[in-house]
Amino acid sequence: MLIEVDGLEKAYGQGAERQPVLRGVSLGLEPGASLAVTGESGSGKSTLLHLIGLLDTPDAGEIRLKGETVTGLDDAGRALRRRHQVGLVFQQFNLVPSLTVEGNLALQARLAGQHDAEWIDTLADRLGLAAFRQRYPEQLSGGQQQRVAVGRALAARPALLLADEPTGNLDEETSDQVLDLMLELCADAGAGLIMATHSRIAADRLSRRVHLTGGRLS
């Protein structure tokens, strides 16, 4: 099993204002498989991805990544696993504005010490970014920026790709293109994919789907 989530709970706020966001979520994903997490706004999709992506820590429950329990890790331990095993794609792209497309593509691979120029070239070609490699993010369209984000997430050949509403800021046609590329590249790299989306069409493209309502899976 690539990822195993068991009884995950998370709440935000203090005292009487404390709001539970996830209530005992459990799921699993095999290597190379893909899973869509759907739900309304505020249902806990992003929180679930943040916890699986080791960006945040749960209040209760356990996460195992490739059989290793990662819920008790400290900040440095979580950072190490993020760097080497997890690729992240955000709705807002989150590219580094002062780096070129090439710099952004290679960033995570360099941080992980796994820079492979050939693989970066392949990614740039497959993502249609070869002509824009020396441009800066502000000189790209939204779709192009999201393709750079996908390339960056896959550059270090992660075991798991997490995408949080990756097409939320894109038009339908561009969304389809980005999704196609993401699925193709994940398959080629052998990476598992978990994607949070409120788009039924996008969710249908993935091999499995779970729905979050009020912090619970249905």
């Binding site: 992506g53 960006l55 900040d75 440095a76 950072a79 190490l80 696993r81 993020r82 760097r83 080497h84 997890v86 992240l88 955000f90 989150n94 590219l95 580094v96 504005p97 002062s98 960033l107 995570q108 941080l111 992980a112 960056r152």
Partner: peptide, 15 residues
């Protein structure tokens, strides 16, 4: 600020 957050998200330790 956004670059720092991205670096952290991509696995760069605080230190």
């Amino acid at each position: 600020r956004s670059t720092l957050r991205t670096l952290r998200a991509l696995g760069t330790p605080v230190r």
